[in-house]
Amino acid sequence: MKSRVLIADDHELVRTGIRRLLEDLGCEIVGEAATGEETVDRVRELHPDIALIDIQMPGIGGLEASQRVRRFEPDCRVIILTAHSEGPLPRALLETGVAGFLTKGCAFEEMQEAITRVAAGERYVSQDVAQRLALDAVAGGESNPFDRLTGRELQVALMLVSGETNRDISGALRLSPKTVTTYRQRILAKLEVRTLADLLRLAIQYNLTAPDQTA
């Protein structure tokens, strides 16, 4: 039986490439999405077996989208796609219950293995991500300042570094403006930075985002 897959990435060229790969694997592509909000809407509309979600998308982004998919469509298995294997995102996402974690530079054979195992009800973490998580565990300490943040704080931080305003974040995450301001202050304090510009530089330094993706 073919796996029904939704592809979520804000770059059309990336979606096209992944579509071709998955079609070669015998998957049925039921839809595509370019933002976090659209991803959640399309999953709820199309009920795919698997959703491949890019972590860095406009709007609520891949982290919040994955959490909402898990909440609204628990039968949909989420595989995260990311350009970076380091940073706090793998840990935070695996804690939410995503089924897989792949880097965009993975080989065709690895994507095939991930799809096969996730479709069978297993979990799959790409080798470079698994190695990084293991090394962090062995170190037994904090290797990344963003590890100090809770899941919600990390989500707000991601939206801040992508250029979202407090009002944008308030609407997208359904939080009061006052709560968003509190989160923002708490994030800056925990990361020991004073301004949003400092936060942007820290996010780039620790591969939380890329320079061309910041406001």
Rank of each mutant, 00 (worst) to 15 (best):
A172G: 07
L46W: 00
E28N: 07
G141T: 15
R194H: 13
P88R: 08
E38W: 06
K190N: 05
A197F: 01
F101L: 13
V14P: 10
D212G: 04
Y183D: 05
T209V: 12
V180H: 10
V43Y: 05
Q131W: 05
E122L: 11
I60C: 03
E95M: 01
D41E: 15
A120N: 06
L46E: 14
L149W: 09
M111L: 15
I29H: 04
L175K: 13
T150H: 07
R194V: 05
P177I: 10
P90K: 07
V14C: 07
R186N: 15
F72E: 09
E45F: 04
G141W: 11
E86G: 08
D147Y: 14
A8M: 06
V40F: 06
V193W: 08
E23G: 03
D54A: 02
R4W: 00
L52T: 02
E23I: 12
L13P: 01
R201K: 14
R4N: 06
T165K: 05
R15M: 08
D128S: 15
Q185F: 08
I55P: 11
A203N: 12
V193Y: 11
E23M: 10
F101A: 06
P58L: 11
L6C: 03
R4G: 03
A114W: 01
Q56P: 00
E38G: 04
L188V: 06
A130L: 14
L89T: 05
A215V: 12
A107P: 02
L200G: 02
D10Q: 09
V69W: 02
K104T: 04
I50W: 03
G62Y: 09
I187Q: 04
L191S: 02
L21C: 08
L175Q: 09
I204Y: 03
V5M: 02
I55E: 09
R174F: 08
A172D: 07
C76Y: 06
N144A: 00
L94D: 06
P145E: 14
L81S: 09
Q131H: 14
V193L: 07
L13K: 09
I60H: 02
T209Q: 09
A203W: 10
L175S: 09
I53Y: 03
Q213A: 14
R77G: 01
G140P: 12
E95F: 03
